[in-house]
Structure formats: structure tokens, C-alpha cells
Design a protein around this nucleic acid. Structure first.
Lengths: 203, 203
DNA sequence: ACCAGAGCTGACCATTCAGTCAAGTTTGAT
DNA sequence: ATCAAACTTGACTGAATGGTCAGCTCTGGT
């Protein structure tokens, strides 16, 4: 039985932990920082979670649960260009709305993905393989340009997550007033529209 | 006066530190790990460098010295598409040849770029502004498609560095035999050729 | 062969940090 | 109002880690 206080405090702790882990990485984060951020004492943190590792695991589990949703929604029966453009927009929207989660994930991958290897090799690979097959069919059927489906998926990841993961760099180049993703959507729409336009059939 | 031994050992230490820092981040790396990797004792490390911070700083300084070279080479007098494609190829080549340096940089940015803020606001911003102006002129002159020059530069960074920074993820999806960048170059050539083709003039 | 300085190390220190615990306070069902 | 369970915390512990130091060994110029 979980109480009202438990739900509230677990949520507060996970929020604080997301803030700290996403900006310092697992090793760089300390329980004291998380406790401060949460406005709770360190022993109290450990009353709700079994340790630093457990907090981190809870955060990743929660994240991975929704991480694949945008890709999952690609519909093989839909219009190819519409589907891919919509996928890109969903990913860009995630970068806008949950940049800390994106950085949490990025930190994990850059450091070799030790804690989410089974997820990557399992759920992620399966889904990517499945959707890549759809993209391949679309390309072979001439409904989009003949591009490598895996690199196409990677390009969406790279181009959208970049705005969350490298936000600091973009801010320093474009100035503090500028929102990092300003102008990104029309640019990426243009890019994918051009990229995907079917090859004109050689008569 | 620097001796032969000094040059050799500083090099060994920086190599080891690059390995460790790039895969664990600054806080996650320990002097003992670096010493192990270098095959030297920890006090010996500190004989050559003033501390963990100093090793990291030396590494970043060395990296930043060449980080901007690919962008710097864009020639305003060259053919726009050729120049931009060549830029993309230079960046992709860097991701292939020096992925650890790319991850060192990525770690730094994701964590808010505290140690290289002045570089980003200074040298990097200046150069990006300068080259963005060139790209803008090309776009306005109709020599490439009308795209936002900043997002165009960001797209090159995102698409090329992704192969180094997210190598672990790509490997787990494509399998261990597959080189992560296999097929990337033709894909990106196709992408930028399509993206940049000048808008057909409306008569 | 000598030796001054460069190069190197085991032992040690201070701090940071994850995690524990005994003893307190608050909550909510009765 | 009572009380058992839920919640909270100051004070602590042990391990990890960045850094120091006295004294050792090696190197290269004479």
C-alpha cells in the first residue's frame, strides 16, 4: 500500500534526481545534491529508495517506458512522407518538452550505455528493425527516395535530440534570449521534405 | 626545457586521460583509473600535471585547438554546395578518426559546458557567426536553398557527431561487426545534395 | 666513475560521499 | 485522545578519492 505522502515524495525525489543526474551524469551526481534539490534530508531519500543506483534506475525505467513511443506510432499504412515528418515532429517536441530526460539518456549512451544495454539490444533494436523494414519497403516501392532506412532513423534522432543535448552550446552561440529550437521545425520540415521526395522515375 | 621522457610521458598520460574522461566524464573519472590506463603511478601523474583539473584542461585545450578547423576551411569564394558537402565530410571524418575527442566534447556540453564557456562564447561564436553570414549570402543569392544558416551548421554537427557520441547505441542496433559509420557518407551526401539544391526560380 | 637533477614511489592525509542507525516527530484510523 | 505505523533526522561510519611528501632510483653530461 502506497500512501499519499509516499507518492508525493517519490515524485519530488525523482524530479530532483532528474535535474541532478541529467546535468552531472551518474557518477558526478551526489545524494546530497539531490537531497538539497528535493528539499529533503539524505536519510529521508534513502527511506524512499534503496540507494543512489535505485533512484537512477527508477528514472531510467520511467524514461525508457515512453522513449520509444514516437517511433512506435509510425504507421505502415499511412502516407510515407507524412508519417516520417510527423515522427520527426514528435521527437522534436520531446526535445522541447523534456530536455532533461534527453540529456539523461545521452549521458548514459555516451558513457557506453552500461545500465541500459539490455534495453538497447532488446526493445529498441526490435522496434528499429521493424520500422526500418517499413521504411525500406517504402524506399523500394519508390514512395520515398532510396535512402538507407537505418541512417534515416539515426538522422531523426541526431537532428532532434541535438537541440536538447547540446542546448548549452546553442544558447551560447545564439544568445540567451533566443530559444534553442526557434526555427528548427521549419528547417527540419524543409530538410525531410527535400530528402524524402521520391526519385523522379527515369523513363 | 622539456626532456624526451617528459614529452613521452605527458603524451601517455593525455592518451590515458582521454580514454577515461571521454567514457566517464570529468567527475566520473578517477586519477587511479588514468594512472592504471597509463601504466604509471598516481604520484607520477601528479609529477607531470598539477592535478586532475589540469590534465582535463590540457586535453580540452588540445582538442579545441583543432575542433574548429573543418568549419574554418569553408571558403566564401568556393562553390556553395561543394564547400558545404566538403565541410560535412571533414566533420564526419573527425567523428570516425577521433571519436573519443568528440565524446569528451559532448560530455562537456551536455553538462552545461562550465569549463569551455569562454571558448563557446568567444572563438566558436565568432567563427559560426562569420560562416553563417556566408551561408546566408549564398541562400539569399539563390546559390543554395533558402535555409536558416545556423540550423544548417547545427545539422552538420548533429548528423556527424552523432556517429561518435552515440556509437554505443548504434553498435547495439546494428551489431558488433558493422562499423557505425558504414553507409553514413553516401546518406549524408544524398541528404545535403537534396537539401541544398537551389529553389527552382519562380518565373 | 661521479653527481646533480630528473624521474619515480610507498605510505600517508584530508575530504567527500554513499549508506546506517537510534531516536525523534507526525499522521490517520479508531 | 490514543497509539501504532509511517515518516524524518542528526550524528555517525567506512570506503573512495584527490593530493602530499620524504626519500628512493635512474639518466646524462662531464
Amino acid at each position: 500500500m502506497t500512501t499519499r505522502i509516499q507518492r508525493r515524495n517519490r515524485r519530488i525525489i525523482l524530479d530532483a534526481a532528474l535535474e541532478v543526474f541529467s546535468s552531472h551524469g551518474f557518477r558526478g551526481a551526489t545524494l546530497d545534491q539531490i537531497a538539497d534539490q528535493a528539499g529533503l534530508s539524505k536519510p529521508n531519500l534513502l527511506y524512499y529508495f534503496d540507494g543512489k543506483e535505485a533512484i537512477h534506475r527508477a528514472l531510467l525505467t520511467e524514461l525508457l517506458h515512453t522513449w520509444l513511443d514516437p517511433l512506435r506510432e509510425i504507421d505502415p499504412r499511412g502516407d510515407p512522407q507524412t508519417e516520417i515528418l510527423a515522427y520527426m515532429r514528435r521527437k522534436l517536441s520531446m526535445s522541447r518538452k523534456t530536455p532533461r530526460e534527453s540529456r539523461l539518456f545521452a549521458n548514459e549512451i555516451i558513457q557506453g550505455a552500461p545500465r541500459i544495454e539490455s534495453f538497447l539490444r532488446g526493445d529498441l533494436k526490435s522496434l528499429v528493425d521493424e520500422k526500418a523494414a517499413i521504411l525500406r519497403d517504402w524506399a523500394q516501392g519508390g514512395r520515398i527516395a532510396r535512402v538507407d532506412p537505418y541512417h534515416l532513423i539515426f538522422s531523426v534522432w541526431a537532428l532532434t535530440q541535438h537541440y536538447a543535448d547540446f542546448e548549452a552550446q546553442i544558447r551560447m552561440i545564439r544568445g540567451p534570449d533566443h530559444d534553442p529550437t526557434d526555427g528548427a521545425e521549419p528547417f527540419l520540415e524543409h530538410l525531410y521534405t527535400r530528402l524524402l521526395a521520391p526519385d523522379s522515375p527515369t523513363p
